[in-house]
């Protein structure tokens, strides 16, 4: 049985694409057949985060318009043979696709894959409408900031109106040192405000910048962020994984540099 998950947030820059790449890769790592779809038409990015930008021949719009077959557009991942990417078009705009066409495309992919992950564009316009049209389940990415949480709340309302029943939060870029001194909202605060179950929490980790630079998702690697993403994947598969302690997520070096800066 396949599941279609949309990764959305409302606000831009909170980590939707990074989350999509890592969760997609993690699910493949756990033995699932996964396809990642970049639905941000005109501003494609998922290919770069996955490190597959040089292998694009056809894209999402080509498939929808019938310029190529699905198989020709899907790019197989470098490391996991059961992980595929359907890239977005860079030279078109979001009006080239309709929600009806997205549902058809997603339903076609259901035959072949266990998980279909849709990386949603920021905003609540047509691109968002297209991305959520065929989704069974939504992962709402947010950060512990007023603007990101406000947008997440709006998105939750829109998903409810569209009857996307299963909605879960990924709280990204948590800095425990700031939470501890009261300068950042905690996971509990965010959960309390949005009243949506939390699928995972990801610390603000330098390794994410490094992994994006290299074009290799860090899920499953040593380190807090890599572990956090793998835990999210396991929870998607229905495993109950305890939330990890982010207390020491700022490593010893950042603490020392922090102290030096203050002195």
């Amino acid at each position: 049985m396949s599941e279609v998950i949309v990764v959305t947030s409302g606000k831009g820059g909170v980590g939707k694409t990074t989350t999509s790449a890592n969760v997609g890769t993690g699910l493949a790592m756990l033995g699932k057949r996964v396809v990642l779809i970049d639905t941000d038409i005109g501003l494609r990015n998922l290919d770069v985060v996955m490190g597959l930008e040089n292998r694009i021949v056809y894209n999402l719009v080509d498939v929808i318009e019938g310029n190529c077959r699905m198989k020709q557009a899907l790019i197989r991942d470098k490391r996991y043979p059961d992980l595929f990417l359907l890239p977005s078009a860079q030279t078109r705009d979001k009006s080239s696709v309709s929600p009806g066409q997205m549902i058809k495309l997603v339903d076609y992919l259901r035959e072949d894959f266990d998980y279909i992950l849709l990386d949603c564009p920021a905003g609540i316009e047509q691109g968002f409408r297209n991305a959520i049209a065929g989704a069974d389940r939504a992962m709402i990415v947010t950060t512990p900031e007023v603007s990101a949480i406000r947008d997440a709340d709006r998105i939750i309302g829109l998903l409810e109106a569209e009857d996307v029943r299963r909605k879960e939060l990924v709280i990204n870029r948590i800095r425990m040192d700031m939470v501890r001194r009261g300068d950042m909202m905690s996971v509990d605060d965010v959960m309390d405000i949005l009243s949506v179950p939390v699928l995972g929490t990801v610390p603000d980790d330098e390794d994410i910048v490094i992994s994006t630079n290299q074009g290799e998702p860090l899920v499953g690697m040593n380190g807090y962020a890599g572990e956090a993403y793998l835990n999210i994947c396991k929870r998607i598969l229905g495993e109950s994984v305890p939330f990890m302690n982010l207390e020491n997520s700022r490593n010893i070096w950042s603490k020392i540099t922090c102290l030096l800066k203050r002195a």
């Binding site: 512990p144 900031e145 007023v146 949480i149 406000r150 709340d153 709006r154 700031m178 939470v179 001194r181 009261g182 300068d183 950042m184 909202m185 905690s186 605060d189 405000i193």
Partner: peptide
């Protein structure tokens, strides 16, 4: 604490939103 300020502001903001 600024975290607490953020929480309070959000609560009011979301009520009206």
């Amino acid at each position: 604490n600024s975290g607490e300020i953020a929480r309070q502001r959000l609560k009011f903001l979301l009520v009206s939103d």
